[in-house]
């Protein structure tokens, strides 16, 4: 997953699809259970506009949830590390909320926000924001005593300390959180679509299931996999652009700080 060795990765994917096809053909798996790769691709190819529209729907909700999570998540993390009071109140509430299975909240969002995009985006934010907050708080707190002394010896304001030392120092952690949040935003959007929706890939899956159109279900899942993978690689590109100085980007072996993965 590290470098962009597309050929190897593409081969791996191709091999996986080939294995799927082989298993279905060799063991004569009924199409209603698992359709062959060919059937799934035919289904997508027979209705490309439909699948494009549905994918874009899910993708835009996912990205909206992700961006909101990053903005509010980092904002909350800054507030939490800047204030003892907020650390005791806001952070405590967040940690408690994180332990609620957030999928269980999805019906509530539909009641509050309706069946449109807002409830999907809210679900995505709800699920992904904890990854950002927790990792950002971790990163913002990891300023070494040396760096704090350096900042104090230069007699800058608290804002300078934040912008010049704390935030850049926290960036690797924040990006680790962003990577997790990106996948979780997609989960949130799909959960939202499962609960109540008229479009999106989650809706496609649910309605196809009702009609036992397994090929459609797999088509939507395949597209979700493609979207998720693409978003993940975009995050890797972003990571390399934002923190080329970090150990994880300098050598092949070292890793970026591990993300704290909150419960979905």
């Amino acid at each position: 997953m590290r470098a962009f060795r597309l050929p190897t990765e593409l081969w791996t994917l191709a091999a996986l699809l080939a294995l799927w096809e082989a298993v279905v053909v060799v063991f004569r798996v009924p199409e209603i259970l698992v359709p062959s790769v060919r059937v799934v691709f035919d289904e997508i190819a027979s209705n490309p506009d439909f699948y494009l529209v549905q994918s874009m729907h899910t993708l835009s909700n996912t990205l909206a949830a992700f961006v909101l999570s990053v903005v509010f998540g980092v904002g909350m993390a800054i507030a939490i590390v800047s204030s003892r009071f907020l650390e005791k109140t806001l952070y405590t509430v967040l940690v408690a909320l994180n332990n609620v299975p957030k999928v269980a909240l999805a019906p509530l969002f539909v009641i509050w926000l309706g069946t449109g995009n807002a409830s999907k985006i809210a679900m995505g934010v709800m699920i992904s924001i904890f990854a950002i907050v927790i990792d950002a708080v971790l990163g913002l707190r990891s300023l070494t005593p040396d760096m704090i002394d350096l900042g104090r010896s230069m007699r800058g304001s608290g804002l300078k300390m934040l912008l010049k030392l704390r935030l850049p120092n926290a960036l690797p952690s924040i990006i680790a959180g962003m990577k997790v949040a990106m996948s979780l935003s997609l989960v949130g959007a799909i959960v939202g679509e499962f609960v109540a929706a008229q479009n999106g890939l989650g809706f496609v899956i649910l309605s196809a299931q009702g009609m036992f159109r397994t090929d459609r279900v797999f088509a939507a899942i395949l597209l979700l996999a493609a979207i998720g993978t693409t978003l993940y690689y975009l995050m890797e590109v972003l990571e390399r652009a934002l923190i080329p100085w970090h150990e994880s980007q300098r050598h092949g072996t070292a890793r970026a700080p591990a993300a704290v993965v909150p419960k979905a």
């Binding site: 070494t144 040396d146 760096m147 002394d149 350096l150 120092n169």
Partner: peptide
């Protein structure tokens, strides 16, 4: 000037 250089990697 500190014992460690405390240069910022970024």
């Amino acid at each position: 000037v500190f014992q460690r250089d405390v240069l910022l990697n970024w």
